[in-house]
């Protein structure tokens, strides 16, 4: 039987720790009051720039922002609340 390497043990411990954090955090899997009250403009400024420059709202029509928002959610793994608020801001 192949011996388990130190790297494998390290990664297993890391993964188990992350899973434990997630499981412990699941009951509180909701945003805090401060985060939940953020405006679409604030979420747009904070999240879009994680990868690229913040997009100008005048770039696309409201309908196209809905499509772009879904595409961005699959890439940046935004929460549903973040996506909805950012798209509503961009559609204004």
């Amino acid at each position: 039987m192949k011996p388990v390497s130190i790297k494998n043990i390290f990664f297993l411990i890391l993964t188990a720790s992350l899973i434990a954090v997630v499981i412990m955090a699941m009951p509180s899997c909701k945003a805090s009051q401060a985060v939940a009250s953020k405006s679409g403009a604030q979420l747009w400024a904070e999240n879009c720039q994680r990868c690229h420059n913040t997009p100008s709202p005048s770039t696309f029509s409201p309908e196209k922002w809905e499509t772009v928002g879904m595409h961005m959610q699959t890439r940046a793994l935004l929460t549903d609340n973040e996506r909805d608020k950012i798209v509503e801001f961009l559609k204004q």
Binding site: V22, V35, A36, L77, T79
Partner: peptide, 15 residues
């Protein structure tokens, strides 16, 4: 399967 989940002041994602 993927998603982003709020966790209080933090956020986590899985993929």
């Amino acid at each position: 399967v993927e998603g982003g989940l709020p966790m209080g002041n933090m956020k986590m994602s899985y993929d």
